[in-house]
């Protein structure tokens, strides 16, 4: 494989996302491309969130997957991270912005309010 080429499934799909502050904030659950027929496709965005999972399950399990993991509502169970926000691909995918600004890590923020009530939290 040439240096400028990258195996996206091997190096990017399912990898850990880490924001500019070093916070783990999701995984690369799917990839989104754009482009017209006949044109080369362009990697457009990373999709992160359990709402994408049903699409990757075997066909007979997809309905069940939607019920368990969500149907893929943008902004709720799927977050779209523009590819331009990727800073570096190493053992993790490092992003250029804070998770909060990209809409990532919402689950941790939601539960943080509950955990904050515990002592020395």
């Amino acid at each position: 494989m040439e240096d400028k080429q990258m195996d996206l499934v091997y190096r990017v799909l399912d990898d850990q996302l880490v924001d500019i502050e070093g916070r783990r904030c999701g995984r690369v659950d799917d990839l989104e491309f754009d482009g017209s027929l006949g044109d080369p496709p362009r990697l457009y965005a990373i999709l992160s969130g359990s709402g994408t999972w049903h699409r990757r399950l075997p066909r007979p399990l997809r309905k069940l997957g939607e019920r368990i993991f969500g149907t893929g509502v943008s902004g709720r169970d799927v977050i779209r991270v523009p590819w331009e926000q990727v800073e570096e691909i190493s053992s993790v995918i490092r992003l250029k912005a804070k998770a909060r600004d990209l809409g990532l890590g919402q689950g941790d923020e939601r539960d943080a309010a509950l955990v904050a009530k515990l002592p020395k939290s």
Binding site: R24, C25, S48, G107, A112, V115, A116, L118, S121
Partner: peptide, 20 residues
Amino acid sequence: FAGWEWGKYRRPRDASRFTM
């Protein structure tokens, strides 16, 4: 597996789903 923040070295509120 889900890519959440985790670790005992984090404050519980900073890795809230892990703590929960």
